[in-house]
Simulated assay, not measured.
Amino acid sequence: MGRRHHFHIDYAGHSISATVETGRTVVVEILIDGKETGHGTTRDDHPVTVQVELPTDPPTPVLVHVNPAPGVPRCTLEVPGAEDRVMSPRPF
């Protein structure tokens, strides 16, 4: 049976959240400013990358990398031209 893990980061004035449901199939849901903007799936404990856009003018493409195993998943935010940022786990 899977578990749900939540991650968050504020970047460029936007709230970016990731929910990672682990199990045989890993499901990743990305929210930007409270709106679902992307999702991805993978099997077992394989990493998955979800591409989304920040609502800037023009939109800024970003990547959320999820490494679901071993143990607690890890999420990082990749923005072109900037250093990767680790998303903080949330306990809810």
Results as ranks from 00 to 15, higher is better:
E21V: 11
G38P: 13
D33F: 09
V50G: 01
S17Q: 13
R24I: 12
R24Y: 12
P91G: 05
H14D: 10
T42Y: 07
H8T: 12
P73L: 03
E36H: 08
V64P: 01
T19G: 09
G13V: 11
T56P: 00
D57F: 07
R4D: 15
F7T: 05
L54H: 03
H65L: 11
T19H: 03
M1D: 05
L77K: 00
D57G: 04
P70K: 06
V26H: 02
I16C: 00
R24W: 14
P73M: 04
R3C: 10
A69N: 13
V27M: 10
G71C: 03
A69M: 11
G81H: 02
T60F: 01
I16D: 01
T19V: 14
S15K: 10
A69T: 14
P55V: 07
P61V: 04
P68Y: 07
H6R: 07
T22Y: 03
R43S: 09
G71Y: 00
A18C: 15
P80N: 01
E29V: 14
F7V: 06
P91S: 05
I30N: 04
G38Y: 09
T37A: 11
P47V: 07
T22F: 04
I32K: 05
V86L: 14
P91A: 05
V79Y: 01
V28W: 02
H39M: 11
V50P: 00
P91Y: 04
G2H: 07
P68Q: 08
P55H: 05
V26M: 02
H8L: 07
Y11M: 02
S15Q: 12
L54V: 08
E78S: 13
T25C: 06
G38T: 11
I16V: 15
S88Q: 13
Q51R: 15
R90C: 11
V27P: 02
R4K: 14
V28N: 02
E36K: 13
V27N: 13
S88A: 15
D33H: 08
R43Y: 07
A12Y: 08
D57H: 10
R3S: 15
P68S: 08
P68L: 04
T49M: 10
R90G: 08
E83Q: 13
F7D: 10
L31A: 11
H65V: 14
P55L: 02
V72C: 10
T76W: 09
K35M: 08
G34N: 06
I30H: 03
F92V: 13
V26C: 05
P91K: 03
H46D: 12
V20M: 01
P91R: 09
K35Q: 12
R4V: 15
V72L: 12
V28F: 02
G38V: 10
E21W: 06
R85E: 05
V64F: 05
E29S: 08
R24S: 13
E53W: 01
A12P: 03
D84L: 05
T19D: 13
R74D: 12
A12Q: 15
F7Q: 08
R90P: 02
P70E: 08
T22M: 03
N67E: 14
V72W: 09
P89R: 08
T56F: 00
I30W: 03
P59C: 06
T41Y: 07
P47T: 09
P47S: 07
V20R: 01
T76C: 08
S88R: 12
Y11T: 06
T25A: 09
T42I: 09
